[in-house]
Design a protein around this nucleic acid. Structure first.
Lengths: 261, 261
DNA sequence: ATATCGTATTGACATGGATCAAAGCGACAG
DNA sequence: CTGTCGCTTTGATCCATGTCAATACGATAT
């Protein structure tokens, strides 16, 4: 695989995507969008120097989370959005009867917490799936600043809208696809998002369990496991626990499109 | 049923929710949020007189759609949001292989088109399920005005966020519920939304086919039909084609919560 | 090394919903 | 009134995925 010039997913931890040379670990504790290597993925995208400076002064401290720690829980009062600086999260919703559903997996550069805007209360749980760090963006101040900075306002609207579109795809997946199609779509989506962040499109480490994947895809963990095994038998991927190598990406894509039923 | 003091869903057509006395048919063709009976449900909620006036001047003409007409299609350039003034819509997404999925049903007071903000292109189709009318809200101008009017900005953000939360519930439904639970959830949701608009919570007319309901709920039309029949046998509802009367709403709710698996 | 614990794999079987097929019903045109 | 068309209902069967259970694997601790 084309691993040579890309950081290995396995040991990357807080390492940077290769599009920047600034190591995160040396950056000050206070968030600084102006210096952030992710800012092309984030709401700071396309802002001028002065605008970035204003955003810097808005964005509060960073917050570190250990694996399995909650960033927020359903029912928590909503105060801020969170930009993921490093790490990996899941969001999930709990039903009274104990059933739950993972509604998304989020990685560096993505925004968490928008579910709380409408009701002032978070509607889902956000949990770190590995040690992670987020920038805290107090929402009232974000609204205020985005009244001053058109580009910021528009970026924010775009992020929310893209989230709506993402949800549409997931509904499509949950409503119309069979187990193997769902998993293929999931793997391709992961691959694509890792690629955007400068990692290998073909080899990555899943941070979530089979059960979490299953919950996200509306399947049982056994079905997920079987589908992985099947893909492996067919030479589409190599699986070793949470380590995935995509051997035949085109084959996975074919699984998605060639299902007339 | 508590029909006496509420308009009958069957014949209401363009009639108003009973919270207002202004008949729509007499209102000028140009949209006027300041006079709109729905404005408590819409982005104009809570604005002052002067702010409403500004919004009026922004909101473009209204647009009438006949049943089955598209408001927009996937791929259309995004220019405006649409506030539903009267009528009933569905949104759906098409896959290359012909499969499609209804992603939502929208009624008066709700906003359509937000899927297009992120990419400047609509990602789904919006189709009128009955003769309908929408207010056209040019988006660039909405952004501009919401930089001036804090309440407008916040309303808009709330609407988008609530849409995200709605999508979460649908994912939950598609990912974890069985056929009858899905349909019960659907009926209760419809009932609740009709209620908000001043109609009977217990009796309403569905504008969509069994197939569209099925597509929305991730089920086949036969399964939807069978579930309706089952509910009727059990005395939960009375169905006659598209006309639904909820007899035992509590029973429907029980179906939702009491399923430990 | 060995024990333990969470996670993953695999097999055997059960079942809910899909599929296929045939009527039934209501609205509308002629 | 009669025929047509789209939609809905209902029945018979099939199959993908869920369920239950056993085993395996890998990391960590002892």
């Amino acid at each position: 695989m084309d691993q040579s010039d890309r950081p290995n997913e396995r040991e990357r931890e807080a390492a940077l995507p290769n599009k920047s040379a600034v190591p995160i670990s040396l950056v000050t504790i206070k968030a600084a969008c102006s210096q952030c290597s992710l800012h092309e993925l984030c709401i700071s995208e396309g802002l001028s120097k002065e605008e970035l400076a204003k955003l810097d002064s808005l964005v509060g401290a960073r917050r570190k989370l250990k694996r399995q720690q909650n960033l927020y829980r359903a029912g928590d009062p909503f105060e801020a959005l969170y930009a993921i600086r490093s790490g990996f999260f899941k969001t999930d919703v709990l039903l009274e009867d104990g059933r739950d559903q993972v509604t998304g997996f989020q990685m560096a550069g993505e925004i968490l917490g928008m579910d709380g805007i409408g009701t002032e209360v978070h509607s889902c749980n956000a949990v770190a799936l590995e040690d992670s760090e987020v920038c805290v963006i107090p929402f009232a101040q974000l609204e205020q600043l985005s009244r001053e900075i058109q580009a910021l306002q528009h970026n924010f609207h775009k992020v929310m809208s893209r989230e709506l579109v993402r949800d549409q795809s997931l509904m499509m997946l949950l409503g119309t696809m069979r187990a193997e199609e769902r998993l293929a779509a999931f793997l391709l989506n992961m691959s694509q998002r890792f690629t955007t962040r400068g990692y290998s499109p073909a080899e990555f480490h899943l941070r979530m369990t089979r059960e979490e994947i299953g919950s996200y895809l509306g399947l049982k963990l056994e079905t997920v496991s079987r589908a992985f095994s099947r893909f492996q038998e067919e030479g589409l991927i190599a699986v070793q626990q949470k380590h995935i190598r995509i051997i035949d990406g085109a084959g996975l894509k074919r699984l998605l499109n060639a299902r007339p039923r």
